[in-house]
């Protein structure tokens, strides 16, 4: 079993933890958790943090009347409170065959997923696993509930949301044991996840998003319709981002696509333009629903990119509250 002897250092380095330490994963929307936490709850008046005064209307409970104000002004005002609760986070990792692409050598002691074993390289799936592990650790440290799911043409393996102490280990174990194959269908996976989700949840989708953009748009629309938040983390290999190859050779797809004779020197410019156009399309779709998108280069470490994303998100949440 690949998960035997699993160590945290295989996917989460102390450097990454140190880089993420100053940040918090904040929900942009109102969370409806059941535990006390740091996220805004839809329920009001029950918690400790004062929010505002409101004029008493018929039907309001007299328990919340502010008698001090009544004594000073002879008017009835009701005190309102803001409740803060915990956040539900569901991490969906693309487990399709295209995620097993990688051109970076595996560092000693790192890796351990199915893709690493098959390719002998640091793949996009490995990078997604590392990013998911870091996010999960961050959420658990905030006492948020985190779950993970590995999806391809449908949900393949999942860990239910929990804030339990050994949840992080369960998440990493799940990611490192699932095979990386088939094609990714975001709509199918999101549909299955929504069927299991009752509370408002932050969905973090880690994929290369190289599939049909229409399927992604459909999945995002469903999430938005159900009032969930989402973050899209696009995992791409450095070579995919730059096409730094000078060859004329047949290119074979990892998901069963037909071979294609390509001279990279001839098409590099067009490829880079197509890639730019594709990523801009994903970014445009996500922003249309108010979701964040971040591109990850698998040859770079996870920490700085995640820190930039969280910082940007914190800024947006704080701005929204003001």
């Amino acid at each position: 079993m690949a998960t035997q002897g699993l160590r945290a250092e295989q996917y989460l380095s102390p450097e990454t933890l140190a880089q993420l330490a100053p940040f918090e994963l904040r929900a942009k929307m109102v969370a409806d958790g059941v535990m006390n936490g740091m996220h805004q709850s839809p329920l009001q008046g029950m918690a400790v943090e004062f929010a505002a005064h409101r004029q008493y209307t018929a039907g309001d409970s007299v328990r919340h009347l502010d008698w001090k104000v009544f004594g000073r002004s002879d008017k009835l005002y009701v005190k309102e409170y803001r409740q803060e609760t915990n956040l539900d986070v569901m991490i969906l990792v693309d487990g399709s065959a295209s995620m097993s692409f990688g051109t970076l050598g595996v560092k000693q002691g790192w890796g351990g997923t199915d893709a690493t074993r098959r390719r002998g390289a640091w793949t996009k799936f490995d990078h997604a696993t590392a990013s998911a592990a870091a996010l999960a650790f961050l959420c658990l440290s905030q006492r948020d509930r985190v779950g993970v799911a590995v999806g391809a043409d449908g949900l393949r393996g999942a860990v239910r949301k929990s804030a339990a102490r050994d949840q992080w280990r369960s998440i990493v174990r799940c990611l490192s044991s699932e095979p990386v194959e088939a094609r990714f269908s975001p709509a199918a996976c999101i549909n299955q996840l929504l069927a299991q989700t009752s509370h408002r949840t932050l969905f973090v989708i880690l994929s290369d998003f190289l599939g049909d953009p229409e399927g992604l748009r459909s999945a995002l629309a469903r999430l938005r319709h159900r009032g969930h938040d989402a973050m899209l983390l696009a995992m791409l290999d450095h070579r995919e981002l730059t096409l730094d190859l000078d060859v004329e050779a047949p290119f074979v797809g990892l998901e069963g696509e037909d071979a294609l004779d390509v001279d990279t020197r001839m098409i590099r410019k067009a490829y880079l333009e197509e890639l730019q156009r594709h990523l801009q399309g994903i970014d445009r779709q996500a922003r249309a629903f108010g979701y964040d998108v971040q591109v990850f280069d698998t040859h770079e470490s996870v920490g700085p990119v995640l820190a930039a994303l969280l910082s940007r998100r914190e800024g947006m949440v704080a701005g929204g509250r003001r």
Partner: peptide
């Protein structure tokens, strides 16, 4: 040089295909 190249596995095949359609014919 053409004969000796081995097949290369690639993930972003759709992007590649579009790039080839756009430029390779003229380049060839």
């Amino acid at each position: 040089l053409r004969r000796r190249q081995k097949p290369i596995e690639w993930a972003a095949m759709e992007l590649l295909r579009r790039a080839v359609q756009q430029s390779q014919r003229a380049r060839r």
